[in-house]
Amino acid sequence: MKLALEARALGKTFRVKEKRAGVRGSLRSLFAPEWKEKTAVDRIDLSVATGETVALLGPNGAGKSTTIKMLTGILHPTAGEATVAGLTPWRERTKLAYRIGTVFGQKSQLWYHLPPVDTFELISRVYELDRRDYAKRRDRLVERFELGPYLHTPVRKLSLGERMRCEIAASFLHRPQILFLDEPTIGLDVVVKERIREIIRERNREEETTVFLTSHDAGDVEELCSRAIVIHHGGVLVDRPVALLRRELLSSKTVTVTLADSEDPATAAEWFGRRAWAPLPEGVELAAIEGKRVRLSVDLALTDMNQLLASLTQAARIADLTVEDPTLEDTIKHIYGMEKTKGGVSP
């Protein structure tokens, strides 16, 4: 297995000045400042194979962006080593930049007052692309990303979704071996998100581009990535294939029951109060009631799904019933919960 990137005990600490509230605190801080070491990334180990699509997940402040910035050579680590495309990012930044692409959702590389085509031209000079090859590549990406209608429109007049498509297309111009994306779909609507994921998947498939992304959006992870690394408080909490992460770590299912119109009284809340089990069977929790729809959270370790469904159908007339896996967001929340209660989760 050829590795696209590898990190060993990679860490980053920042020195942060701590100040007490108010004017007195400011004066005290002026003459006797108190400094504190803040660990942003706590000696994490990572390895990503060529062509793999990996998500780095975690809550705000977990160290996702700091990790990506160290791997792209933007930040120098305070501990550990890393190799990206065979190079040490912070020592061989210039060489590495030719081999990787970066998309920072909050930091644009497009010129605000100019159309995307002008930025593409500049980027072709930044990466010293062959003119004919650049023209072919640009036309291909414009076609695939459907940028034609606004290629000559100033960026300031584009919607956020159109701008992000241009950002990602720009990052693909020099055929990067590895693409780093930091919150690529932040603030976008569902349709645009889906389009962007589709395009990234296509590049991964056709050019074997390794994708390493951070996101708060469970959809990005579920639809784009084969593996998820969850970090919290700067350390790796879980490193698992996305499918396994959902199946293994959460042995629960969500059962949604819609009561038939003939059920009386009309609302599920009343029905549950009058006719349903009291109390609910062990391992079943009432998650939500909306009108005639009831959502149950079922722990399969404590409850047999067949028995539960049989009891439900015997107890009431049911119009609709669905059994689903929990969303990745729920899974991550669950992992954090496990860490709090058990003091850590081993992968």
Partner: peptide, 13 residues
């Protein structure tokens, strides 16, 4: 080597 980056939104103009 001491650059600390940041999380401000930035555009090039």
């Amino acid at each position: 080597a001491r650059y600390a980056s940041g999380n401000a939104m930035t555009m090039r103009n």
